[in-house]
Computed example of a mutant assay.
Amino acid sequence: MAFWASPAGQLAILVIGWLVIRASKRILKRRWPTGLSTWDLMTPLLILCSVMLIPAGAGLILPWLVIGWMSVGILVTVIQAVHNKELLYSTFFKTFWRLTDLFWTLGFAVCFLLVIS
């Protein structure tokens, strides 16, 4: 169990998750939702792996990552409300989740670098 909580274990979890999602996408071909990318399903794994790195030394930056994530949500809401003069759930959630993908990929990288340094 200690391996899965280590930084190498976290990378293994992400690689295994990536391979399972890609294999599912390849097997389901036509039934796979067209707007759904592999990164969209990797975000929960990235959040989980970042949280699992807290005991190893990533606990210092994780609260700031959560605050940043909430700020991304507020920023997307305000920008879409001002620019489009309306806030539609479908456009908001797709934009927010794609930015979440990017944000937590960078967040996991920072947590990982803090732990291994």
Rank of each mutant, 00 (worst) to 15 (best):
F3K: 00
F3M: 01
P7I: 06
A8Y: 11
A8H: 11
A8P: 00
Q10R: 05
A12Y: 04
I13S: 01
L14S: 02
L14C: 04
L14A: 08
V15K: 07
V15S: 07
I16H: 05
I16S: 08
L19S: 14
V20P: 02
V20N: 05
A23V: 14
R26A: 15
L28R: 11
K29Q: 12
R30I: 10
P33F: 02
P33T: 08
P33W: 04
G35E: 14
G35M: 10
L36Y: 06
S37W: 08
T38E: 11
W39A: 15
D40G: 14
M42C: 05
M42G: 02
M42L: 15
T43H: 06
T43P: 01
T43F: 06
T43Q: 09
L45Y: 13
L45R: 08
L46S: 03
L46E: 01
C49T: 14
S50F: 01
M52V: 06
L53W: 01
I54W: 08
I54L: 05
P55M: 07
P55A: 08
A56V: 04
G57A: 05
G57K: 03
A58Q: 00
P63H: 05
W64L: 11
L65I: 06
L65M: 07
L65E: 00
V66F: 15
G73T: 10
I74T: 12
L75K: 08
I79N: 08
Q80M: 11
A81S: 15
V82L: 13
N84I: 07
Y89N: 14
Y89E: 15
Y89V: 14
F92R: 04
F93I: 14
K94M: 10
F96K: 09
F96E: 06
L99N: 07
L99A: 09
D101C: 12
F103E: 07
W104M: 03
G107Y: 00
F108S: 00
A109W: 08
L113Q: 12
L114H: 09
V115P: 00
V115K: 00
I116F: 04
I116M: 07
